[in-house]
């Protein structure tokens, strides 16, 4: 199963998902969130929801010089923090900007597709979806 953004037009911009993600990582606030909601150029235009989409062949893992990032089929990537040197290559390589940064540890933070944030989305913007054969869902 992977986290999927069903329809950004349903998003009201409350950011409850962001708080949920950070909370699950043990921090109240937003420092540890792996999902981001921002306006699509003014709130009247709605919102952009940025989160790892579990690419089939993730560019972030390909550019990791220390082998810290491993692709997990249909579940995104996993970071081995003991190997990670905090170079930031993965963040640069992610086309959609879904690799977030833990400023305290100076290491990347990436969605693990656990689906916890879905519980706190009041309008069904997010869902856990089975990976479609051949390619990642949007």
């Amino acid at each position: 199963m992977k986290l999927s953004v069903v329809d950004t037009e349903r998003c009201i911009g409350c950011q409850s998902c962001m708080f949920a993600c950070s909370r699950l990582m043990g921090k109240a606030g937003l420092s540890r969130t792996c999902i981001r909601v921002r306006s699509a150029g003014g709130m009247e235009r709605g919102f952009v929801v940025i989160v790892c989409r579990a690419c089939e062949d993730p560019p972030c893992a390909k550019v990791c010089p220390s082998g810290a990032l491993k692709a997990k089929k249909g579940k995104g990537v996993r970071v081995d923090l003991t190997k990670c040197i905090g170079c930031g290559n993965c963040q640069d390589a992610c086309t959609i900007g879904a690799i977030f940064w833990d400023d305290e540890a100076d290491k990347p933070m990436i969605c693990i597709h656990c689906g916890y944030c879905i519980k706190y989305c009041p309008h069904g913007v997010l869902e856990l979806a089975k990976l479609e054969a051949g390619h990642a869902k949007r």
Partner: peptide, 10 residues
């Protein structure tokens, strides 16, 4: 409909 940050009510 829009919400303030950290308010699910909109």
């Amino acid at each position: 409909r829009l919400a303030c940050a950290h308010c699910p009510v909109a």
